[in-house]
C-alpha cells in the first residue's frame, strides 16, 4: 500500500451503512481522516460512534458504502487483516485481558509482529510513557484500576505500531486528573506520527485535542469541520458542551 502524504486522507468513509439485524445503526456516514490528524467523533449515547469504529476495524460488517484506507476499499477484510494493515482499535470499556499480566496484554497487542527486539523496545516505550504499568508489569490486568486499565488498553493498541489508531471513549469513567493525563498522551502519540480517530463523550476535552471533528446523531453526521470552529458553534455548545 502506498504511503500517504501528511494532510491527505488516510481513511475515508463514503456513505457507510451498518445494520444490527433490523436496527439501522449507521445511516450513511461520510467523513475523512487526514494523515497526521486527530479527528474526533462526538455525539450522544447511541449515536453510532462505537459502531462506526467497529465497522472500520471489521468487528461488524458494513451493510453499505465504502471504507477507504490509503485509497483502497477495505470492507470485506477480516478484523485481523485490518490490524495487519495498520489500523488498531482500542475498544470501548477498555477490554483488557483480565487474567493476563500487564506485560502479557502488551505482548498480545503485538500478536501479528515477529520482531522480538522491536516488541521489547515498544513495551519499554509503553512503560516509559505510563510508569505505573512498569510497576504492575507482572500483575493481572483485571486487578488494575480503571485508569490504569485504560492506559494499558491504549498501550496495547499501540503495540501493533498502527498508522491509524481508533480510540473509543478513553476518558470513560476516569477522574478528571487521569483524563488530563490520557489526553496529554493522546496528543503525544499523535505528534509521534499516529493518526487518530477519537470517539468521545467528553466533547469539551475532545475538541481541545482534535484537529477536526464530526458530530453524529442517530446514525448520521449533523456537523463537521475544524474542531476549534465546532467548539465555538452555538449548536454544538448547546447540545454537547453542557449548555443545558
Amino acid at each position: 500500500m502506498s504511503l500517504v502524504a501528511p494532510g491527505h486522507p488516510l481513511l475515508e468513509l463514503q456513505d457507510l451503512h451498518v445494520h444490527y439485524g433490523a436496527i439501522h445503526a449507521i445511516k450513511g456516514i461520510s467523513l475523512s481522516v487526514r494523515q497526521g490528524e486527530i479527528l474526533t467523533l462526538i455525539g450522544s449515547n447511541g449515536a453510532g460512534k462505537s459502531t462506526t469504529l467497529r465497522a472500520i476495524s471489521a468487528l461488524v460488517r458494513a451493510s453499505g458504502g465504502r471504507i477507504l484506507y490509503r485509497g483502497h476499499a477495505i470492507q470485506g477484510y477480516r478484523a485481523d487483516q485490518v490490524v495487519g494493515m495498520g489500523i488498531a482499535h482500542c475498544p470501548e470499556g477498555r477490554g483488557v485481558f483480565p487474567a493476563f499480566t500487564v506485560r502479557e496484554n502488551l505482548e498480545v497487542g503485538a500478536f501479528l509482529r515477529k520482531d522480538r527486539e522491536g516488541i521489547e523496545a515498544d513495551i519499554e516505550t509503553a512503560f516509559t510513557r505510563f510508569p505505573v504499568l512498569r510497576q504492575r508489569a507482572r500483575q493481572p490486568a483485571g486487578t488494575l484500576s480503571g485508569g490504569e486499565q485504560q492506559m494499558l488498553a491504549i498501550s496495547r493498541a499501540l503495540m501493533c505500531r498502527p498508522a491509524l489508531l481508533l480510540l473509543d471513549e478513553p476518558s470513560l469513567g476516569l477522574a478528571p486528573q487521569v483524563v488530563q493525563t490520557i489526553f496529554a498522551i493522546i496528543r503525544e502519540i499523535n505528534r509521534a506520527g499516529t493518526t487518530i480517530l477519537l470517539v468521545e463523550q467528553n466533547a469539551h476535552m475532545a475538541l481541545q485535542v482534535a484537529h477536526q471533528a464530526c458530530v453524529l446523531d442517530v446514525g448520521t453526521v449533523v456537523a463537521s469541520g475544524p474542531a476549534a470552529d465546532l467548539a465555538r458553534s452555538d449548536e454544538v455548545k448547546k447540545a454537547y458542551l453542557g449548555g443545558h
Partner: peptide
C-alpha cells in the same frame, strides 16, 4: 496459546488485536 487464551479472556479484544 496466547491467541487461544486471549479469545477466552475477551474475544472481541482478541479480534481487535489481530487474532483470527
Amino acid at each position: 496459546g496466547r491467541a487461544f487464551l486471549s479469545i477466552r479472556e475477551n474475544e472481541i479484544a482478541a479480534e481487535a488485536m489481530g487474532v483470527d
